[in-house]
Design a binder for these strands. Structure first.
Lengths: 231, 231
DNA sequence: TGTACATCAGTGAACGCGCGTTCACTGATGTAC
DNA sequence: TGTACATCAGTGAACGCGCGTTCACTGATGTAC
């Protein structure tokens, strides 16, 4: 029983103590990623922030790259579960399209603003890494598939000539602006840019307008203020 | 006359020969940026690509950073001129809003697809550099100002409650998708994504829909195929 | 309940590699007379 | 039209710094009897 199972990015912890250490290391990494890109965060710095030695990091993780891989694995696993729960058909029975995309946009705005540091690191560092690409693709495809399934029965509400394209491209519009704002820090350059609320309002307005929702696509109150939350 | 004027990023060339060398170096950098990010391109590599020695680069440029700064300076200077020419009021006399933004979107799609390598380097490397930020801000603000001026007399065609916001946020929608597609390589993940034409069509559709252009905002042919080109 | 031993967890100084930068040098171009 | 000299342009091997990674070691935890 000498041969330990070698996981790809991380060595499994055997004791409670080391599990705590691992968490501290990952949290420290996340914290430092709020301010700087992954390549500008040194392993020594992560060790310092986590109050462990450099060696402790290498005792758990294959290398520096492994740190971000593990964070991304964790993140994407959670994302898949969340998506499935959030976009399940029963949850939205009887809901109008407008209601669904309002919840969607609100959700995306929240995620991007709250997880900006991590998302930035994933996007920038992971751009050229096939593992990141694969997990990202899996997340996006899963998300889109659920959304398409959910809205398929509601295509009648959509005035765009190709409803399926409209749904996915509309999502690209929304996430495009969000990534620009939170990942590239290049949003609308207006003095002070937009508040999160205004951002959400306009994104929703854009998505709706682009889909060309017919009046019947809206609930009782035709404008914002939908009740159901996505998570 | 010993003291040469020390430009910031670049030493002025005195002979024709060195001017050619400088161009070769800048072109080589640009070429290499098509494939890799600036930090993954080594000075030795640039030298090899430009068929000069490493020292020749340092004879002209202050340091590696200076290379990209000069490229960006050149790029932004051109962008300012182009913007002024492209969005001048006389050029668009009598044009409908729809016509203007159609040209705009086409222009942006073209720039992003053609200059992807450079734009990517500027966005990613320049994210944290104040000089890049300043020049970027200058470009965007100039562009927006011209566009707002041009469309101000046409606010009547715009159904969005705040036309000025609509114009700038609409632009953010368009450039958000473009940057996602060409800079982060994370467009719509559909098999094979969209063709450039389809991308342009949908972006234009989205911009139009978001502005809520009234019927009178369109020329004779209500759909695509506007005649005037922006550059 | 104690003792001996094996394995796990963690330390931090030292190593080494990649890459930006320098520098002593050679060759090219231009100018004065 | 030549010759001497100054400056410009370019070379590429060597340097050195930052940072990821290793490794010989100490300490902590668990297990057998």
């Amino acid at each position: 029983m000498k041969a330990k199972i070698e996981l790809k990015w991380v060595r499994a912890a055997q004791q409670e103590r080391s599990r705590r250490t691992m968490t501290r290391i990952l949290d420290a990494t996340e914290t430092l990623l709020l301010r700087r890109g992954f390549e500008h965060v040194s392993v020594a710095e992560i060790a310092r922030q986590a109050c462990v030695s450099v060696g402790a990091i290498y005792a758990r993780f294959q290398d520096k790259n492994g740190l971000l891989q593990v964070l991304h694995e964790r993140f994407s696993a959670e994302a898949l579960v969340t998506t499935d729960a959030a976009l399940g058909p029963k949850r939205w029975e009887g809901a109008k399209t407008a209601e669904i995309i309002a919840a969607l946009v609100g959700f995306l705005v929240r995620i991007h603003s709250e997880q900006a540091g991590l998302l930035r690191a994933f996007s920038l560092y992971g751009r050229n890494d096939p593992h990141f690409q694969a997990r990202n693709r899996r997340m996006t495809e899963n998300f889109l598939e659920r959304l398409q399934t959910l809205l398929r029965a509601r295509h009648g509400e959509i005035g765009h000539p190709d409803p399926e394209l409209a749904i996915s491209f509309g999502l690209a519009l929304v996430s495009g602006v969000l990534k620009n704002t939170f990942i590239l820090d290049e949003g609308v350059p207006e003095p002070g840019a937009l508040s999160l609320e205004a951002l959400e309002t306009e994104l929703l307005r854009a998505y709706r307008a682009y889909l060309h929702l017919s009046p019947m696509a809206y609930g009782d109150g035709a404008d914002a203020g939908d009740s159901r939350e996505i998570v």
